[in-house]
Design a protein around this nucleic acid. Structure first.
Lengths: 231, 231
DNA sequence: TTCCGGAAAGGACATATGTCCTAAAGCCTT
DNA sequence: AAGGCTTTAGGACATATGTCCTTTCCGGAA
């Protein structure tokens, strides 16, 4: 990820209505960074000096164990925030962050934010809401993971991305690029994911054809997910 | 839980240095509640009108599934906060909350807090730090749960409560009252917990004598926990 | 002291999930 | 079209964990 002075932050500030958190005078202090698919954006242990707002693209936050296992904590799209908790708690980066697509971030230094926080209440309110929401969804996901088997979590995931009613099909549209990633997201092994998918096919809940997955029976899927929805 | 007008909130406010978040004028708006061991303090779905500060006693936050399984999300001791996320996000109570011992809470209405928030920045800073910390530890615990087997989580738990160095013994001192509760805390069944405990005994990591558990080999425990510590 | 219910301990068996491995299919690149 | 890499599929087996049940133990109520 690197600073990109050619890009003007203003369009993003308007698009995401950031004037509410960054007053006019603050905007010159905002830096624009661009990143490329696959970039490692942050690594655990790293010390952060800026907070970032994701305004374009998609990134994933994940945990790597010493043993090499990997677990996706969450995906972020605009307007995701990175470094908020580090800013508040003053600790170093906890998880790995990687770019899933090309994208753009706006950055503001902790130092500047400290001043902003003092003079501009809406900013801290924004932070508070951001963190509260992160806590809320983390907490939901955590319970879901602890209490239900992969099949249920997977059903829940499918529901969460099939927007609303129709037996939506998500082809390349699936939010995870491939099955390996999906496995890391649901928190299981590729092998097991495959097993569960197979079962869902034989239960006539989904259909699979060359890599694409289609929901066949939304009702059954709902039953299975049992009211649990990611996010 | 019920209001208790006989109790003066001031000693608590001093003990926990709450003047920093509640200015003098606000204190008359604080209500004192007392509760008794076993009380159900809050139930999921309930609408909250107040935020609570736990100033005495111990409570547990847990999730109950429709199937009747139960999972302890966390314990709280003073100065724990309940209802902060609900205040910020405006949603209803997410988890069940139950008193583990007798105790006391200070309450302030959301309505009053809204005013306070506007006039007294330290309060919102306090909230932000509280929520950030909750998120941080929830996130750690969640990864730990997803990535490691019960044995590791248990080792981690033992470490977290054995304060520091010495092969501390925790008898009735164990933060969970009994093995059933410990199982819910580690997120497993009683049966399996027992199995793992037995293994730890035969590995000479701990010793068991009539309900008490003693750490025998702190080094092995550390190896096992593998750098993971709750909280 | 006797009786009862809950907590502890663990056997037997079922299920969920992980690890290792092999084969086939798909897709680039040359 | 041929090779090589990644992704998909799934067999075989091992391990982690859950469910159900029985026995024993212990402290409090009668």
């Amino acid at each position: 990820m690197k600073e990109n002075k050619k890009i003007n932050p203003h369009p993003y500030i308007e698009r995401y209505d950031l004037e509410r958190i960054f007053p006019e005078e603050f905007i010159p202090k905002v830096t624009v960074y661009t990143f490329t698919k696959g970039d490692v954006l942050f690594a655990p242990g790293e010390t952060l000096n800026d907070m970032y707002l994701l305004v374009e693209g998609k990134i994933k936050i994940f945990t790597l164990t010493p043993e090499g296992k990997s677990l996706i904590n969450r995906f972020k799209r605009p307007l995701g925030v990175v470094g908020d908790v580090e800013y508040v708690k003053g600790n170093s980066v906890i998880n790995s962050v990687e770019a899933v697509s090309d994208g753009v971030m706006l950055a503001a230094s902790f130092e500047d934010l400290k001043v902003l926080e003092r003079n501009h209440p809406p900013f801290i309110r924004f932070l508070l809401e951001t963190v509260a929401h992160k806590f809320y969804s983390e907490s939901q996901a955590s319970s879901l993971h602890m209490l239900y088997p992969v099949e249920v979590r997977l059903a829940s995931y499918f529901l969460s991305i099939s927007s609303d009613g129709e037996g939506t099909l998500f082809h390349q549209e699936m939010r995870t690029a491939n099955l390996t990633e999906l496995a890391e997201w649901v928190g299981t092994s590729y092998r097991h994911l495959n097993r569960v998918l197979k079962k869902m096919v034989s239960d006539e809940i989904i259909e699979r054809a060359n890599g694409s997955i289609k929901i066949k029976d939304l009702e059954k899927l709902r039953d299975l997910a049992n009211g649990n929805i990611y996010e």
